[in-house]
Nucleic acid binder design. Structure first.
Length: 453
RNA sequence: GGCGAGUUGGCGGAGUGGUGACGCAGCGGAUUGCAAAUCCGUGUACAGGAGUUCGAUUCUCCUACUCGCCUCCA
């Protein structure tokens, strides 16, 4: 049995992963707020936890793992988008979810077992809030329901903060109806223009954090194994989730292991709209950058470190994958390399595993292919981009060969060189040897540029 | 201010208490009409200081620098 070790944010240590029930390993990952295309940063947790999902399935069995990733489809950003575009909220969220699926599929990420939408679990949230009020952990004030942070002794443990420290920093909204500045909203009132649901506290909508607590409880139970997301969620989102869930279900421990991926950068800088280096996954795909290339670049950095997206990495990954696909063409996948599995099992060392792939690439092609596929590379589904188009270059090859033969006699290679140059500019790889002339479509191949040759 | 991450050769990026991966680029060679591709070969890298140790890049502490989160954004 492979031993999986994971760096648990809760204990700040790398620990041996021991599932609560090896027959039913449960993982919850915070998903997107669906109001627009996913940007590249959104893809990082998707890919990181995709690897973890694959690893867990490998170790415990494909049927023994439950992976839940939510869609936040009630949020003020969505409301704003709906108002701006004069569209219904459901219309926007439906479309965005479809985009999300398309884009993440293109990166080779497996779909989770459950992708609950917040709006479909409002009842569960209301029940949880009622329970929290009944237990003294929450209170209603002016149509709002607030979580009483002081009622949860361990508040701040995950992110290493104390309530008092945070109040000192005081970057919190100090609403007059809060008992304590750190108290956060479980339910808030909606007006006629804002989506809402009837509740014991009037017409309103849930706060952001409660959905993950409610849905993880409903789908995974009061205790489950792994909770993941970006490290920007550690506070306040995950801290608040813990407070809600542990107070509502003191019989459970909520998540045993917390995993947080570091943030993404672009050419060494934070990706942000204000810096103008903000782009979506779809932007990259539309530029012709294959999802598989994005995947290789993204997994080339350990999830615990900042990941820097650069064009140089993109281009190297492109070349690497072309080479690799050439190596496994027509090869049947064999057994997955155990050393690669062990490397991934060591806190998802994807960069180390990719390094291992380079080594495997020099050995048995069947093992190499299986190992690459295990990580979601070199699959048929992602392979279209690198397919050698069914263009027939043999006529051109013959022509070039004829020119070359003639040139060998005359010692005048100018015609040969001119044609070679034109071919290379069209993205054709030109190989000439004693054996003859071979032409292959390569990166940047453009059939249109072959016209007239 | 609070919390956290990082600093390995030209670049990217693994790993280890005791001959320092791998990829790309570079350089030399084979090959080629020239290239490309391929093959062979090649590189006195572990931020700085102190400590532990027979021995540290690897463990501990300190310093410097970089970066991220805490704010719409994962």
């Amino acid at each position: 049995m492979t031993t999986i070790k994971l760096h648990n944010s809760k204990t700040r240590k790398k620990e041996v992963f021991e599932p609560i029930d090896p027959q039913n390993v449960r993982m919850y990952v915070c998903g997107p707020t669906v109001y627009d295309r996913a940007h590249l940063g959104n893809a990082r947790p998707v890919l990181v936890f995709d690897i973890l999902y694959r690893l867990l399935r490998h170790v415990y069995g494909a049927d023994a793992v439950t992976y839940v990733r939510n869609f936040t489809d009630v949020d003020d950003k969505i409301n704003a988008r709906a108002a701006r575009d004069n569209r219904s909220i459901r219309d926007i969220t439906d479309e965005t979810i479809e985009w999300y699926h398309d884009d993440m599929d293109a990166l080779g990420a497996l779909r989770p077992n459950h992708e609950p939408r917040a709006t479909e679990w409002i009842g569960a949230m209301v029940s949880m809030i009622e329970d929290l009020i009944a237990k003294g952990h929450a209170y209603e004030k002016e149509g709002h329901v607030l979580f009483r942070v002081r009622s949860y002794e361990n508040y701040g443990a995950l992110s290493g903060r104390s309530v008092d420290d945070m109040i000192a920093g005081a970057r919190v909204e100090v609403a007059p109806f809060k008992e304590d500045p750190m108290d956060f909203v479980l339910w808030k009132p909606s007006d006629a223009q804002t989506p809402g649901w009837d509740s014991p506290w009037g017409y309103g909508r849930p706060g952001w954090h409660i959905e993950c607590s409610a849905m993880s409880y409903e789908l995974l139970g009061a205790s489950f194994d792994i909770h993941g997301g970006g490290n920007d969620l550690q506070f306040p989102h995950h801290e608040n989730e813990i407070a809600q869930s542990c107070c509502a279900h003191p019989e459970g421990g909520f998540a045993n292991v917390w995993l947080h991926n570091e943030m993404l950068q672009v050419e060494g800088k934070k990706m942000s709209k204000s810096l103008g280096n903000f782009f979506t996954v779809r932007d990259l795909l539309d530029q012709g950058i294959p999802g598989e290339v994005v995947r290789l670049v993204m997994l080339g950095t350990h999830y615990g470190k900042p990941m820097d997206w650069t064009d140089k990495k993109r281009s190297e990954a492109d070349q690497t994958l072309r080479n690799w696909r050439g190596l496994v063409a027509g090869v049947e996948a064999g057994a997955v390399d155990q050393e690669l599995i062990d490397t991934l099992a060591d806190d998802l060392n994807t960069a180390g595993a990719i390094a291992r792939l380079y080594v495997l690439a020099k050995g048995d092609a069947a093992i190499f292919k299986a190992s690459a596929e295990f990580m979601g590379f070199l699959t048929d589904a992602l392979g279209d981009w690198a397919k050698v188009d069914d263009v027939d270059l043999s006529a051109l090859a013959d022509k070039l060969a004829a020119l070359r033969t003639a040139a060998m006699e005359t010692k005048d290679f100018s015609a040969v060189d001119a044609m070679k140059k034109a071919l290379m500019e069209a993205g054709v790889e030109v190989r000439m040897s004693k054996a003859g002339v071979e032409l292959l479509p390569a990166a940047g191949f453009d059939a249109a540029k072959l016209e007239g040759l």
